[in-house]
């Protein structure tokens, strides 16, 4: 692929990772996400999907290989352009904060984002334990939309919620990323959900398997 095309992609190049030296979780993973594209990925629990998500969002460094964001390596001095949204919002929000402070975390948040996500004015004065998980997850999504965000990794973001909440959250999220031309990697074990939301679906075990053969 020519270099100028690669410039608008989140790329995993030859990524490998282990927690235990004798046991590679995965090796030689190649994956690229274009801007404005939603990729769904599924696989068994314990197969390393979340670890890959953490590596792509720069929470972890890969043991080998590199992650390129629009052709560049990560730069720690600025807001990282790949944002990760977690499965359990109640564990990702400071319980002592009022929720209005969550928006301050995202600095220059667009005015219309809270309303698109269905965040109500009265929730802002409350703390995390006074809202349900589905309501909190909307805050976690909102704060991922910093103006510099170019890619979002959504790791099982609706698996704890009922079908209506799930549909609400994904409709809002899809609208936001398409408007802003953001690339999304959606991780889920729910294949029919991925079929609804993604432009392309990948089986994580195949991704791993393909690389194993090439050793």
């Amino acid at each position: 692929m020519t270099k100028w095309l690669g410039a608008f992609m989140l790329e995993c190049k030859n990524i490998g990772f282990y927690y235990n030296r004798s046991n590679w979780l995965f090796r030689n993973i190649h994956l690229s996400i274009e801007r404005g594209e939603i990729i769904g990925i599924y696989g068994k629990s314990g197969s390393g999907k979340t670890t890959l998500a953490k590596i792509m969002a720069n929470y972890l460094s890969p043991t080998e290989g590199e992650v390129l964001v629009d052709g560049e390596k990560s730069n720690h001095s600025e807001v990282y352009p790949v944002q990760l949204i977690w499965q359990h919002p109640e564990q990702a929000i400071n319980p002592k904060w009022k929720l209005s402070k969550i928006f301050e975390e995202a600095k220059e948040l667009d005015q219309d984002i809270p309303s698109i996500l269905g965040i109500k004015e009265e929730w802002l004065n409350r703390r995390a334990h006074e809202l349900s998980g589905g309501e909190l997850q909307r805050f976690c999504i909102a704060r991922a939309f910093h103006p510099d965000t170019r890619y979002i990794i959504a790791d099982e973001i609706t698996s704890m919620f009922d079908a209506i909440t799930q549909a609400q959250i994904w409709h809002a999220l899809i609208r936001l990323v398409k408007e802003r031309n953001i690339g999304v990697l959606a991780i889920s074990h729910h294949i029919s959900l991925l079929e609804r939301i993604s432009d392309r679906i990948i089986d994580f075990n195949q991704l791993k398997g393909a690389s194993e053969k090439s050793f």
Partner: peptide
């Protein structure tokens, strides 16, 4: 609202 039935929110 189930993804396989309409995904209506």
């Amino acid at each position: 609202a189930l993804p396989q039935n309409g995904f209506i929110a």
